[in-house]
Simulated assay, not measured.
Amino acid sequence: MIPLHDACNKVLAKFLNYSVGTTPENYLRVLFETLRSFHDTSSDFYTGRIKYGKISKQHGQFWYPTLTTKAFVYDPFFTSPVLKAYYDNLPETGKGGEQRDDSAVYYMKPTSKTDPFRKLPAELLMMILMHLPARSIFQLKLASVAIVQLQLPGSFWKQKLKRDMPWLWDFPGQGTEQTRKNLDWLQIYKDIYIGSKGNGRSPFFNLVNRNRIWRISEQIAPRFVKCQEEWEIAKARKRKDYLRP
């Protein structure tokens, strides 16, 4: 048996809308077939292969969350007071200093001649970093002076926030450019990235659980799509047999 809470099901539905753009009329039936298929031990999608995150060690007949896993009992759709306070006071850039084009990318100073990345235009490096996870960017900074000296605009981090955290559907920073132009998108990215990992003194517990369920949905979605295709084929065959004289 694979338990699926209502909140988890809603996150899965949002993931399917985001990834494959599908909300079939027979959603619950396809979902049932998808979950049932995970019991097939000969399948590559066998449930034992699903990674549930840090809570895996707590799985059993009863679930006893610990201090490090208590976030996983939070409703992923509930906006906690800590997160609401953060949303109401999003960090902004400094008021003083020289203003520059928020879409421009440049090197802070001449890069090392021995760094192979220095041969690449700053705009190309920005495109590469857009597709890398945050952990890889950090590791790349340890290996490249050019990456460290690369000054990325706020618009980069705003776009990367949407790309890396598609589960952040309740983020309020989508207002008009006039009211949101001073937001510090790099700091926002850092805060939410760390807070949704369960790290720091004030983690965003609902985002921690939402992020975890989203990662599980990534593993379920391919099987769901396959079951949906099989369902559509079977339905088409039944319709064809029905219309056959």
Rank of each mutant, 00 (worst) to 15 (best):
P203D: 09
D170K: 01
G195N: 05
D101G: 05
M108G: 00
Q151Y: 09
P166D: 05
G198F: 12
W157A: 05
S196A: 15
G154N: 15
P133F: 07
G175A: 10
W167M: 08
A104H: 13
L168K: 07
R100W: 14
P91V: 10
N182L: 06
Q174K: 13
T179W: 08
N211D: 06
K190W: 08
K181H: 09
L140N: 00
L124K: 10
K119D: 04
G173I: 11
V148H: 00
S112A: 13
V148K: 04
L168D: 04
N211L: 04
P203I: 13
D101M: 12
M126A: 15
T176P: 01
L125V: 08
P121I: 07
I137G: 01
D102V: 05
D184S: 13
Y189M: 11
P153N: 06
R163K: 14
H131A: 08
T93K: 14
S144T: 02
Q159G: 08
L90W: 03
I128H: 07
G195K: 09
W157K: 08
L150C: 01
E92P: 00
D115L: 09
M127G: 02
L186T: 03
H131I: 04
H131L: 11
G173F: 12
R210C: 10
P133W: 04
D101F: 14
W185Y: 15
K190A: 12
D115E: 06
Q174L: 14
P91N: 10
N211W: 08
P116M: 06
K190R: 13
F205P: 00
R212F: 14
K141G: 14
R163Y: 15
K160I: 03
F156I: 03
F138Q: 05
N206H: 15
L168E: 05
K158C: 02
R215Y: 04
W214R: 05
W167P: 00
E177I: 04
F117N: 03
M127L: 12
A134N: 08
H131V: 04
Y107C: 02
F171A: 10
E98F: 05
L124E: 05
I216W: 10
N206T: 13
A146Y: 00
K119V: 03
